[in-house]
């Protein structure tokens, strides 16, 4: 029993199809619970007011925007090395999900920035990096659409994904160099706030397990960061991940079927 068995399209479809309803169900449940919890049952932040509720969408979407690209990089490498068609098709199926995640992160970030920074858009390193990531997704998807032969398309997009990853990394550092951040110390940062929430939570868990002798002191700048935000945020993150997995399974199955239709039709034409 090996992981590579799932590279067989038939096996892949047979395994994932029964999982699909469960995955969609779990994703929906997590999103509903997490978002409702976050929306109705968490307090407002002193400095950010109720805009803090945007993190339950913004942070998971931004996390997925990067993770989806990472997943595409891995599947591209698997395709180039082991020539499993399912792998290439999974990368193709994931790209539109990634672009939607990037778009959600950008839009919610802009809406959050409007009242907090007084502007919809700032050329902040983090925002700019996501914009560049968005362009990479666009180019990747356009290349898939442009090439007729499926194997050639899979090869070329895989190479683009690898080279693109390297340059996306370079861009990240270049952008940081180019603008060290308009909103560094003096104003609120959604991400710093989120990291504070996460750090505070793990310190809390650690301290309650190991008792008072080994208390971790977390450098939390904002006084009102508290653990109540963490659990709904975590549930939303899980919801986004499971939703992504469900969508990738479903879309990959669709791509496999499209490929099979093409194969059957060309075989029928040949006689």
């Amino acid at each position: 029993m090996s992981f590579w068995e799932y590279a067989n399209p038939k096996k892949f479809i047979a395994t994932t199809t029964p999982i699909l309803p469960w995955a969609f169900g779990i994703a929906a449940a997590c999103l509903i619970v997490g978002l409702v919890w976050g929306f109705f049952f968490t307090p407002d932040d002193i400095r950010q007011g109720s805009t803090v509720k945007i993190i339950y969408l913004h942070v998971p979407a931004a996390m997925m925007a990067i993770n989806v690209w990472g997943m595409m990089l891995v599947t591209s490498l698997i395709w180039l090395i082991r020539r499993h068609h399912v792998s290439a098709l999974a990368a193709r199926a994931a790209a539109p999900i990634g672009i939607v995640m990037t778009l959600i992160a950008l839009v919610t970030g802009a809406i959050w920035g409007q009242p907090m920074w007084g502007t919809w858009w700032a050329w902040d390193p983090r925002l700019t990096s996501f914009l560049i990531l968005f362009l990479f997704y666009l180019g990747y998807m356009a290349l898939w659409e442009a090439i007729d032969d499926p194997d050639t398309a899979a090869d070329l997009t895989s190479i683009l994904c690898i080279v693109g990853s390297v340059f996306a990394f370079l861009s990240r550092f270049a952008v940081q160099f180019w603008n060290q951040g308009l909103h560094q110390a003096e104003s609120v940062s959604l991400w710093e706030w989120t990291f504070n929430v996460i750090a505070r939570f793990f310190a809390f868990v650690w301290n309650s397990i190991f008792g008072a002798e080994q208390v971790i002191e977390v450098a939390v700048r904002e006084e009102n960061v508290s653990n109540v935000f963490f659990v709904p945020l975590l549930i939303c993150m899980i919801g986004f991940v499971v939703l992504f997995v469900a969508l990738v399974f479903q879309r990959t199955t669709t791509e496999i079927r499209v490929r099979r239709i093409r194969a059957l039709e060309s075989r029928a034409r040949r006689g």
Binding site: F24, L35, F39, D44, G49, S50, T51, K53, I54, L57, H58, A61, P96, I97, V100, L103, I104, V107, T108, I111, W112, Q114, P115, L243, L247, Q250, R251, T253, T254
Partner: peptide
């Protein structure tokens, strides 16, 4: 509070985009 429009619109837009993605995927499938 005073940020109602921002919070509501970001929820509506994000959930609409997710729903659209799921709907397009399901229809194509």
């Amino acid at each position: 509070g005073k940020y109602g429009l921002e919070v509501l619109s970001s929820y509506v837009i994000s959930l609409a985009m997710l729903a659209l993605l799921v709907w397009i995927s399901a229809r194509r499938a």
